[in-house]
Amino acid sequence: MSVDKDTVRRIAKLARLAVPETRLEPMAGELNSIFQWVEMLGEVNVEGVPAMTSVEAQKLKWREDKVTDGGRADELMINAPESTDHFFVVPKVVE
């Protein structure tokens, strides 16, 4: 399996990363060498092996249904690049 320039462009789009046109080709090369190395996993017979979903043998913690948070609209806006009236502001989204 080999990654080409178009694939890099496609996954960069999925990842919302602006990768300059001139970086696409070199990035494809870098990814290819990594994926070639990873190919060795293909040697292992994994039939019947369950995929790990958690490294711990622990039960998921459950929380009581109580309101313990909120009322912090001011704090939420402190780090916002743009906000108004406790809303986060982004360029107009067209649906």
Partner: peptide
């Protein structure tokens, strides 16, 4: 770039941002 951290300037739309 919406709620915290670096936001690029001059974005055309949300995807560009």
């Amino acid at each position: 770039g919406v709620r915290f951290g670096h936001r690029a300037s001059g974005a055309r739309d949300i995807t560009d941002l």
